[in-house]
Design a protein around this nucleic acid. Structure first.
Lengths: 128, 128
DNA sequence: GTTGACATTTGCCATTTGGCAAATTATAAT
DNA sequence: ATTATAATTTGCCAAATGGCAAATGTCAAC
């Protein structure tokens, strides 16, 4: 029924009023229909990422700021943090190895793992 | 008809294969149906922000990394970074890479780095 | 009051998303 | 080979998104 848990709508409306803009003006600047914007503000619709992105600048929000408000992005962009979910292994990464790997861009890091898996599967095949 | 312009699907599949995970395993870890994941990979569906968020961690992506790849976030938006505290200017180890490497004994970890350096020196030689 | 110009809301609809279950396609194992 | 089993794809569907146009509200000048 009444989708009550509506922070986002209120925040958006508050910001629009503060700017100030009318729904139609915001619609014009963001290329999102005013009817849709209105529904979003009063919580009848939930904006997609595409819509959020369009209205961010006219409202003076940073994109990621809005994404976080919408719950699309977690409050803090995680660093190297580990998370529950998958069983954690007792072993750790050799500090020297970690330092060397950390200097490589993510795609290289992943390629390294890819090669490692490949070598392991080859080795496994040979022993059999 | 064929939605060809599909970077994201390929990237996602590539990463899933590299990890490696099956669609069903990824489905289990992300709580997204395997059929939907499959369609996303081959470009028949486009993932919403909610879905992207769910699959980020199992695939070893940062959330904002995926959002950027999906075109939801403009490139190089500095997450929540520019604020006070640690600006993590330099690189880090990809969580997935960390997890995989941690399962290997130290000597294997070091060998991996050895191979990496070797490859880099070869590449360097070639470009000259 | 009435009129007119804006602003917001509502009705209706096409399109998209995403899940479930059945069908199809690999992949082993005997 | 022939099963058995796992993995991927397809068919179908409910729910949600978002736009357009018509309806309703609001507020000023007359």
């Amino acid at each position: 029924m009444d989708y009550a848990n509506n922070d986002l709508g209120k925040i958006l409306k508050q910001q629009r009023i503060t700017v100030p803009l009318t729904l139609q003006e915001l619609a014009a600047e963001s290329s999102v229909s005013s009817s849709h914007l209105g529904r979003i503000e009063r919580g009848e619709r939930f904006p997609s990422a595409r819509i959020l992105r369009k209205i961010a600048k006219p409202l003076g929000f940073d994109e990621d700021e809005l994404f976080t408000l919408a719950g699309f992005l977690s409050p803090q962009t995680p660093g190297v943090a580990e998370e529950s979910g998958t069983r954690y292994n007792s072993r750790q990464i050799d500090p020297y190895v970690a330092r060397m790997l950390a200097e490589e861009p993510p795609e290289v890091q992943r390629s390294v793992i890819g090669i490692l898996s490949l070598l392991k599967s080859i080795a496994k095949g040979m022993s059999k």
